[in-house]
Amino acid sequence: MATVMDNGRDLTVMLIADRCAPDGDAAAGFQRDLHALGARLLPAGQPMLAVGPAARLGDLAAGAVGGLWRVLGVVLLASFVLLLLTFRSLLIPVKAVAMNLLCVCAAFGLLTVAFQDLGREGADVNALLPLVVFTIVFGLSLDYEVFLVHRIAEHYRRTGDNTAAVLHGLRHTARPITLAAAIMAVTFGGLMLTRRLDFQQGGFAVAAAIILDATIIRMVLVPCLMRLLGHRNWWLPGFRSRRGSAP
């Protein structure tokens, strides 16, 4: 149903009533059809503005997706620089950023399988989740990375033995990382008991990412890579000559 209100000069307002849920695919498709119709009927350059719950949700989702790349760039660059300055290594921050991205991508893959492929029909992943989950997971993952690598770097600089340093780091951080990850996974997993689908998806994604990060990433992949890279883990152009005594 549509009602037209025209002021007779330069503005036409159309009130359109529909039966679509504002956050559903039907509402999004309806908004696209309206804009396509306006583009065909209105003169060139004439703007068409839409308001209402569905339009606001669409604008919010578009803004979140558009801002994701800027947030991604800032977080990755800041993480790289911070780890570079902390550990005086070029490969450590590169490895940390790559592992964290792998963890986030794997978590979203599990989220898609759980809620779209195996879940109820029409349970699309909320458009705001990538931005929110990425920032939360990346911050938590860097915490675990710093805990582990700091122990390894401390032992390596004292002994110069990379293999022994990796074992030392695992031995002294496995329990606190596991306990911290379990607490965070249970906390965010509790959101899955709510009735809101977006809360369920967010809780599942963060909990899955934390479990993957604390087990496969932090306890298996990172130590294996550091063991294989050996002394190259601690390479930084020009740093050895400036420190002189650094191993």
Rank of each mutant, 00 (worst) to 15 (best):
G119K: 06
I16S: 08
R175L: 11
L191M: 04
G190S: 11
L131Y: 02
L57C: 02
L110Q: 04
I92K: 03
I152N: 01
P43W: 08
D143A: 10
F87V: 00
V81W: 09
D6N: 00
D213K: 05
L118K: 06
R88S: 08
L197R: 06
A39N: 03
G8V: 13
M5D: 10
F147H: 01
L76H: 11
F115R: 12
D117I: 11
K95H: 00
G203V: 10
R157H: 13
V51D: 15
L193I: 03
A182D: 02
L212Y: 04
S241A: 12
R40D: 14
G189S: 02
V133W: 09
V97Q: 01
V51Q: 13
G38E: 10
V74R: 03
L225E: 03
A207T: 03
L77F: 12
D18M: 14
L82P: 12
C105A: 13
F138Y: 05
P43N: 07
R243T: 10
M226H: 01
V4G: 15
A209P: 07
F199V: 08
D59Q: 08
R175A: 15
V186H: 07
L60F: 15
S89A: 02
M48D: 14
A185Y: 05
S245M: 12
L72N: 14
R232V: 01
V74M: 03
A36T: 03
M226Y: 03
A44P: 14
I152G: 05
R171I: 01
A62D: 13
L128S: 12
I152V: 11
E145A: 11
T187P: 04
F239R: 07
L11V: 12
I216D: 13
M1G: 15
V166M: 11
L212I: 05
G52Q: 08
F108K: 12
M219Y: 09
L49P: 14
M184T: 00
L102K: 05
L49N: 15
F188H: 01
V13Y: 00
F239G: 07
A21I: 13
D198H: 05
R218M: 03
F108I: 01
